[in-house]
């Protein structure tokens, strides 16, 4: 498969993998730690959405599905399939627990991207596509335009019934 096309498609797959799992696991509902609340409020002050801000704060403050997706891709590339993904899931779980997070989102994200990497390998995707793809996916949430990204995340949280009750 063409590398550029592979990276773009991997970025889209990674984006949906981590955003859907993180939203499903309730990242927009409440800040897990004080830092996530500070980020959420700051995003809201700048015209963003509070639930989306909490989502952004939570993924900064603990390794959730975003980190799980990235680490599992790196581990699959470095160690192999499926050992890399399984080892990444364990490491993400401990990272989560250290960061005051029960660990569901990160672990599920690592395991799901391992399955995705395995399945997409049959159509020519390589784990390295997902490493670059995930970096690009996280850039769209954390690096380009915070307020716009938070509004999109807030809308998604509303649709999935995970919008914050905190005002």
């Amino acid at each position: 498969m063409n590398e550029i096309l592979g990276i773009v498609l991997a970025a889209i797959i990674s984006w949906f993998n981590f955003v859907l799992i993180d939203t499903w696991m309730g990242l927009p509902e409440s800040p897990g730690v004080k830092g996530a609340e500070v980020i959420g409020r700051s995003v809201q002050k700048r015209g963003g959405d509070l639930a989306g801000g909490f989502f952004q704060g939570n993924i900064v403050c603990s390794p959730d599905a975003s980190a799980g997706t990235l680490l599992a891709s790196i581990a699959c590339y470095a160690i192999g399939m499926p050992e890399g993904g399984l080892i990444a899931a364990v490491l993400v779980y401990f990272g989560n627990r250290i960061c005051a997070d029960p660990g569901y989102a990160g672990t599920i994200g690592a395991l799901s991207i391992t399955v995705i990497i395995y399945l997409t390998s049959f159509v020519g995707f390589k784990p390295e596509f997902f490493i670059v793809g995930m970096v690009l996916a996280i850039l769209t949430i954390q690096g380009l335009y915070h307020t716009g990204a938070s509004r999109l995340l807030g809308k998604l949280a509303k649709k999935m019934g995970r919008y914050t009750k905190i005002s």
Partner: peptide
Amino acid sequence: VLSIGFYAM
């Protein structure tokens, strides 16, 4: 999850 991860290690 830990059991399969530890076995992978």
